[in-house]
Protein backbone atom coordinates (compact mmCIF):
# COMPACT_ATOMS: atom_id res chain seq x y z
CA UNK A 1 0.00 0.00 0.00
CA UNK A 2 2.74 2.40 1.04
CA UNK A 3 4.80 1.54 -2.01
CA UNK A 4 1.89 2.08 -4.36
CA UNK A 5 1.01 5.43 -2.76
CA UNK A 6 4.61 6.50 -3.11
CA UNK A 7 4.86 5.49 -6.75
CA UNK A 8 1.59 7.28 -7.44
CA UNK A 9 2.80 10.46 -5.86
CA UNK A 10 6.10 10.15 -7.75
CA UNK A 11 4.13 9.75 -10.93
CA UNK A 12 1.98 12.78 -10.22
CA UNK A 13 5.03 14.84 -9.24
CA UNK A 14 6.66 13.88 -12.53
CA UNK A 15 3.47 14.71 -14.39
CA UNK A 16 3.16 18.07 -12.62
CA UNK A 17 6.73 18.92 -13.65
CA UNK A 18 6.03 17.97 -17.25
CA UNK A 19 2.78 19.97 -17.31
CA UNK A 20 4.50 23.01 -15.84
CA UNK A 21 7.19 22.88 -18.52
CA UNK A 22 4.60 22.32 -21.27
CA UNK A 23 2.59 25.32 -20.08
CA UNK A 24 5.63 27.61 -20.24
CA UNK A 25 6.57 26.34 -23.70
CA UNK A 26 3.03 26.61 -25.06
CA UNK A 27 2.97 30.26 -23.93
CA UNK A 28 6.33 31.03 -25.56
CA UNK A 29 7.04 32.03 -29.15
CA UNK A 30 8.53 29.30 -31.35
CA UNK A 31 11.56 31.48 -32.15
CA UNK A 32 12.34 31.93 -28.45
CA UNK A 33 12.14 28.19 -27.78
CA UNK A 34 14.31 27.48 -30.77
CA UNK A 35 16.85 30.10 -29.67
CA UNK A 36 17.04 28.52 -26.20
CA UNK A 37 17.29 24.97 -27.55
CA UNK A 38 20.17 26.15 -29.75
CA UNK A 39 22.27 26.78 -26.63
CA UNK A 40 22.37 23.11 -25.59
CA UNK A 41 23.64 19.92 -27.20
CA UNK A 42 20.45 18.01 -28.03
CA UNK A 43 20.16 14.27 -27.42
CA UNK A 44 19.62 11.94 -30.37
CA UNK A 45 15.89 11.61 -31.05
CA UNK A 46 13.32 10.60 -33.65
CA UNK A 47 9.77 11.66 -34.39
CA UNK A 48 7.27 9.19 -33.01
CA UNK A 49 4.39 11.20 -34.45
CA UNK A 50 5.16 13.52 -37.33
CA UNK A 51 4.19 17.07 -36.34
CA UNK A 52 0.65 17.79 -37.57
CA UNK A 53 -2.07 20.43 -37.51
CA UNK A 54 -5.59 19.87 -36.35
CA UNK A 55 -8.46 21.35 -34.36
CA UNK A 56 -9.80 21.07 -30.85
CA UNK A 57 -13.33 22.01 -29.86
CA UNK A 58 -13.00 24.57 -27.05
CA UNK A 59 -15.58 24.08 -24.32
CA UNK A 60 -17.07 26.55 -21.90
CA UNK A 61 -19.55 26.03 -19.07
CA UNK A 62 -23.12 27.33 -18.83
CA UNK A 63 -22.94 30.29 -16.45
CA UNK A 64 -19.16 29.83 -16.19
CA UNK A 65 -19.51 27.00 -13.68
CA UNK A 66 -22.25 24.68 -14.99
CA UNK A 67 -22.66 21.99 -17.62
CA UNK A 68 -20.19 22.13 -20.54
CA UNK A 69 -21.07 23.40 -24.01
CA UNK A 70 -19.11 23.72 -27.26
CA UNK A 71 -17.94 27.29 -27.78
CA UNK A 72 -15.97 26.96 -31.02
CA UNK A 73 -12.83 25.36 -32.38
CA UNK A 74 -9.17 26.37 -32.19
CA UNK A 75 -6.23 25.36 -34.35
CA UNK A 76 -3.63 23.18 -32.61
CA UNK A 77 -0.42 21.41 -33.51
CA UNK A 78 0.91 18.22 -32.00
CA UNK A 79 3.97 16.00 -32.21
CA UNK A 80 5.63 13.13 -30.34
CA UNK A 81 9.37 12.53 -30.03
CA UNK A 82 11.42 9.60 -28.67
CA UNK A 83 14.95 10.01 -27.40
CA UNK A 84 17.43 7.28 -28.28
CA UNK A 85 17.44 6.50 -24.54
CA UNK A 86 13.70 5.69 -24.73
CA UNK A 87 11.95 8.70 -23.17
CA UNK A 88 8.84 9.71 -25.12
CA UNK A 89 7.78 13.35 -25.14
CA UNK A 90 4.54 14.94 -26.37
CA UNK A 91 4.08 18.41 -27.74
CA UNK A 92 0.74 20.22 -27.98
CA UNK A 93 0.14 23.89 -28.63
CA UNK A 94 -2.51 26.27 -29.92
CA UNK A 95 -1.85 27.50 -33.44
CA UNK A 96 -0.51 26.00 -36.64
CA UNK A 97 3.22 26.02 -35.90
CA UNK A 98 4.18 22.33 -36.24
CA UNK A 99 7.82 23.09 -35.49
CA UNK A 100 6.80 24.52 -32.14
CA UNK A 101 4.87 21.35 -31.25
CA UNK A 102 7.91 19.30 -32.21
CA UNK A 103 10.20 21.39 -29.97
CA UNK A 104 7.75 21.09 -27.05
CA UNK A 105 7.72 17.31 -27.52
CA UNK A 106 11.51 17.22 -27.51
CA UNK A 107 11.63 19.32 -24.32
CA UNK A 108 9.00 17.08 -22.70
CA UNK A 109 11.14 14.03 -23.46
CA UNK A 110 14.21 15.74 -22.00
CA UNK A 111 12.28 16.76 -18.87
CA UNK A 112 11.74 13.03 -18.25
CA UNK A 113 15.38 12.11 -18.82
CA UNK A 114 17.69 11.92 -15.77
CA UNK A 115 20.53 13.09 -17.95
CA UNK A 116 18.79 16.12 -19.51
CA UNK A 117 16.09 17.21 -17.05
CA UNK A 118 18.26 19.72 -15.18
CA UNK A 119 19.84 21.07 -18.33
CA UNK A 120 16.57 21.70 -20.18
CA UNK A 121 15.09 23.27 -17.06
CA UNK A 122 18.05 25.61 -16.57
CA UNK A 123 18.74 26.58 -20.17
CA UNK A 124 15.29 26.47 -21.78
CA UNK A 125 12.31 26.32 -19.45
CA UNK A 126 13.49 28.59 -16.61
CA UNK A 127 14.42 31.59 -18.79
CA UNK A 128 11.23 31.21 -20.84
CA UNK A 129 9.22 30.97 -17.62
CA UNK A 130 10.77 34.21 -16.42
CA UNK A 131 9.81 35.89 -19.72
CA UNK A 132 6.24 34.56 -19.56
CA UNK A 133 5.85 35.75 -15.97
CA UNK A 134 7.33 39.15 -16.81
CA UNK A 135 4.85 39.52 -19.68
CA UNK A 136 1.96 38.58 -17.43
CA UNK A 137 3.08 40.97 -14.72
CA UNK A 138 3.38 43.81 -17.20
CA UNK A 139 -0.17 43.21 -18.43
CA UNK A 140 -1.43 42.90 -14.86
CA UNK A 141 0.19 46.23 -13.94
CA UNK A 142 -1.30 47.98 -17.00
CA UNK A 143 -4.69 46.53 -16.14
CA UNK A 144 -4.40 47.50 -12.47
CA UNK A 145 -3.98 51.17 -13.44
CA UNK A 146 -7.54 51.08 -14.83
CA UNK A 147 -9.09 49.90 -11.56
CA UNK A 148 -11.76 52.32 -10.34
CA UNK A 149 -11.18 53.84 -6.91
CA UNK A 150 -14.58 55.06 -5.75
CA UNK A 151 -14.73 57.86 -3.28
CA UNK A 152 -17.70 59.58 -1.73
CA UNK A 153 -18.09 63.32 -1.65
CA UNK A 154 -19.10 64.53 1.79
CA UNK A 155 -21.80 67.19 1.56
CA UNK A 156 -23.10 69.74 4.00
CA UNK A 157 -21.94 70.71 7.50
CA UNK A 158 -22.24 67.19 8.93
Amino acid sequence: MMASDESQSNESAGQARRKAAMAVLAHSEAAEISGRLGTIALPAHENLREPENGLVMVRGRVGGDGAPFNLGEATVSRAAVRLSTGEVGFGYTLGRDRQKAQMIALCDAMVQSDQFADLVEAKVVAPLRAAVIAGRNRKAAETAATRVDFYTLVRGEG
Partner: peptide, 9 residues
Protein backbone atom coordinates in the same frame (compact mmCIF):
# COMPACT_ATOMS: atom_id res chain seq x y z
CA UNK B 1 -9.08 16.85 -38.50
CA UNK B 2 -10.46 17.40 -35.01
CA UNK B 3 -8.32 15.86 -32.26
CA UNK B 4 -11.07 16.16 -29.63
CA UNK B 5 -12.57 18.61 -27.17
CA UNK B 6 -10.75 20.64 -24.52
CA UNK B 7 -11.54 20.48 -20.83
CA UNK B 8 -14.12 23.20 -20.16
CA UNK B 9 -12.29 26.49 -19.56
Amino acid sequence: PRFGATDPV
